[in-house]
């Protein structure tokens, strides 16, 4: 089976027609389903948060069978993820796409669990500490995308679980948990 790094590629990745958008509705739905799952799986295991459809991306071409996804196909698959709430376009031109293999709500739950597991219920942490501190090492929060993290934190702030405070620079931004 073909691999990308340590990622096992599914068999359909080696079947040329899956790289052409299928005109027949049922076939296309199946095709989209397989691609959506592949994109989410790959991003989750490789911790990739942003896909830029106009740029090279390992999933978008398969040199072994000399096929690559057209720009239209990339946009169709990503848009399908967006419509399911598993991704978001970051700009109007659809040049960057934020991939949410966990929805923001799920990320927020992960943060709460992290806080409880580490007894940080009343503590203060900087954003950077959450992303790369010793506490988060080995958890899914490690090296989380900053945009995603901020969105999840804002959701929690909205629920009164924490307060975000700003320092003098972006590095100093932090949160006070009050779980």
């Amino acid at each position: 089976m073909q691999k990308l790094g340590d990622f096992k590629l599914p068999q359909f990745f080696n079947y040329p027609p899956y790289f052409t958008l299928q005109p027949v509705k049922d076939t296309r739905e199946k095709q989209m389903q397989l691609w959506k799952e592949l994109i989410l799986d790959y991003c989750r295991t490789q911790k990739i948060f942003i896909i830029e459809p106009e740029k090279e991306f390992p999933l978008f071409s398969n040199p072994a069978i000399e096929r690559s996804l057209s720009h239209e196909a990339r946009e169709v698959f990503l848009s399908a993820l967006v419509s399911e709430g598993r991704a978001e376009w970051m700009d109007k031109g659809h040049r960057k796409c934020l991939i949410l293999w966990h929805r923001i709500q799920d990320w927020a739950d992960l943060i709460l669990r992290f806080v409880k597991d580490n007894g940080l219920e009343d503590s203060v942490m900087t954003i950077e500490e959450i992303r790369s501190g010793t506490e988060s090492r080995g958890t899914e929060l490690h090296e989380i995308d900053r945009t995603v993290l901020m969105r999840a934190l804002k959701l929690l702030e909205h629920k009164g679980k924490l307060t975000i405070f700003k320092g003098t620079s972006a590095d100093d931004e932090g949160v006070k948990f009050s779980v």
Binding site: Q11, P16, F19, T27
Partner: peptide, 26 residues
């Protein structure tokens, strides 16, 4: 059948999953 427009020669290919072994895996 499934269409495949990706080949270098630019000719559309019609693939038939029922005669290729890929169906097993998918």
């Amino acid at each position: 059948a499934m269409i495949d427009d990706g080949h270098r020669d630019g000719k559309r290919r019609y693939w038939f999953p029922c005669v290729s072994s890929i169906s097993a895996y998918v």
